[in-house]
Design a protein around this nucleic acid. Structure first.
Lengths: 344, 344
DNA sequence: TTGTATGCGTTATCAC
DNA sequence: GTGATAACGCATACAA
């Protein structure tokens, strides 16, 4: 391993000068700079991040922790992981223009994971947390040690910044669309995991929308876990009853896709017999037949805004924590009963 | 920030002892250990990774670099990024059981990206490189500095380990299926990016398979870039000609989906008029109508095997570099002309 | 403009 | 079992 000392020796200067060249300081004579640069090149010298981090008290690394639900040897796309992938790309894209690198950690709830997350405090300058990985107390404690921004977490967190999509408005809008535009009265809801704040907000918004509509009722709420398979299971539960609902509203697209496929497999026509809607607007929603009516979430924006906020907070730790709700938008396709050309 | 000195002072021991407790050394009296542990807990002490890395000469971090093609503000799933996401999850899953963390870097070809990749040498203990990010010479130079394993790279690399799916066998099998089982004679090929080794192998295998089949010919090869949009564009190119091919073989699923949709939009029946096949077996292939006949690639296995190999190489840098080809498998669905129930 | 010297937080090598 | 103490590689305050 070649160090700054090697470079200094070969170039005939002091380590301080080499360091200056590295840092791009302009207090170095152009000639000296060239000479040092040449030596760096030939020696293939790359500064050690550990040593650098030690003196600078800054690691130039930000961490991203996300939840991984269910077994880990199964197909990603069937297990609702798309959310975090979007965030990863958005974050990485922002970081690319900076000095920072992205450190990734996934896991499923539990003491082990919590310990791992806590240990990140020693490896990163700031932390992006997707969903509710830690409970309130833990989050608060961690936030005291390093800058934290939460994505799609609970909005009643006062110790950290939170970024989330407008689940409430989005879900209310699809529910009303089904009720007002398509006259569906008996609705089913396929809920997401209880530990996902997004899922909770969507469920509440759905229930309120139905309650606010005279003559409407919730036929059944089936518990899912955001995975396509849980959507399939939910459909089976519904099929087992005497009568089907007029519409199935799902807490995310993956489950809606599962519901839709399973209903069709059982000979139920969608949307003629039963309307189905999702949430998120993942790519597959456009591809499935009929195309899924859903709510588009600003994945990309969520990730990049949260990242920028974290960067700002690293530079100014005193920033007052705030909750940012990014707008969602109903995407009308055909699974709700609208004509295909309704595809805005 | 609380350090090991603080812990030592409060616990009334030396820093060496605290370090021993941290490292889990058993040369510490149980009583002392308990006391130290208690102090660590109350102080919320987390060891600094930089300092640790500096003395241990090991960062406990491995890097993963991947290619990001095209604009970066567009939908991930439309831009062929699924591949790297699979690898990310597989890698993370392996690392989760170890001391290592995962450092992510994406980018598109260019000097800037190459510089960034080189600088990773100072931040990680080993590097996982997806596709052909660096040319031969650069790769060789980097491999001299730190352990490297390449995924889906060129197989003629002698300086590093390479893991890839069996593109050749997979592509040959679909092509033969189209020709032998469905009697398609005039075939089109939608190629992937020229800088993707996978794409090159698939194209070559396709051309050889056709050449080896008497009476068969390649009507046209259209250049794509692995994105769905480029598939749409390719379909338009074909539609502009006098006559359509009997089958369109695509270098990946994303493009096949684009081709399929665009052909259908133009009133062409798939597979009746034109058969379409893909490669990769991404989730959307199952969902689209008709379901896509394709070749499943062992994404997960590629990622985890490569990661394990990298870990092994970090522990034993002298390992002889080797190329590992993981099996692929044809997945017959309906877009080739097989009956839906033909679904394996 | 350049060099010297010290400190960053941890581990590891010695002694005790 | 435990405690000093010397690295580890780099940045920077201070001199020159």
């Amino acid at each position: 391993m070649t160090t700054i000392y090697d470079v200094a020796r070969v170039a005939g200067v002091s380590t301080a000068t080499v360091s200056r060249v590295l840092r791009g300081s302009d207090l170095v004579h152009p000639t000296t700079r060239q000479r040092v640069l040449a030596v760096i090149e030939t020696l293939g010298f790359v500064p050690d991040a550990s040593a650098r981090g030690l003196t600078r008290r800054r690691k130039d690394v930000i961490g991203l922790v996300g939840l991984e639900r269910g077994a880990d040897e199964i197909d990603i796309e069937r297990s609702s992981l798309l959310f975090v992938d979007h965030i990863v790309h958005a974050t990485e894209a922002v970081l690319r223009g900076t000095e920072y690198s992205l450190l990734l950690t996934f896991g499923s709830r539990g003491e082990l994971f919590e310990k791992r997350v806590r240990s990140l405090a020693g490896q990163v300058d700031g932390l992006l947390i997707a969903e509710e990985v830690l409970d309130d107390a833990q989050l608060r404690a961690l936030a005291a040690q390093l800058p934290i921004v939460v994505i799609a977490g609970r909005r009643d967190q006062s110790a950290v910044d939170v970024f989330l999509g407008d689940n409430t408005a989005g879900m209310a809008a699809v529910a009303r669309h089904l009720i007002d535009q398509h006259g569906r009265r008996r609705l089913c809801f396929v809920a997401g995991p209880r530990d996902a704040p997004d899922a909770t907000e969507r469920r509440l918004a759905f229930e309120q929308a139905v309650a606010a509509s005279p003559g409407c009722g919730i036929a059944q709420v089936v518990q899912g876990d955001f995975s396509e398979d849980s959507g399939v299971a939910a459909a089976r539960v519904m099929l087992a009853r005497k009568s089907l609902p007029q519409a199935v509203v799902c807490a995310n697209d993956q489950m809606a896709i599962g519901v839709l496929s399973e209903l069709q497999r059982a000979g139920v026509r969608v949307p003629a017999d039963v309307a189905v809607t999702g949430f998120d607007d993942v790519h597959a929603s456009r591809i499935i037949d009929p195309p899924l009516t859903t709510v588009s979430q600003p994945f990309r924006d969520l990730g990049s805004s949260a990242t920028r906020r974290l960067l700002a907070r690293i530079d100014a730790p005193a920033l007052t924590p705030a909750v940012q709700v990014l707008p969602t938008q109903v995407v009308i396709r055909a699974s709700c009963g609208c004509r295909p050309q309704g595809q805005r």
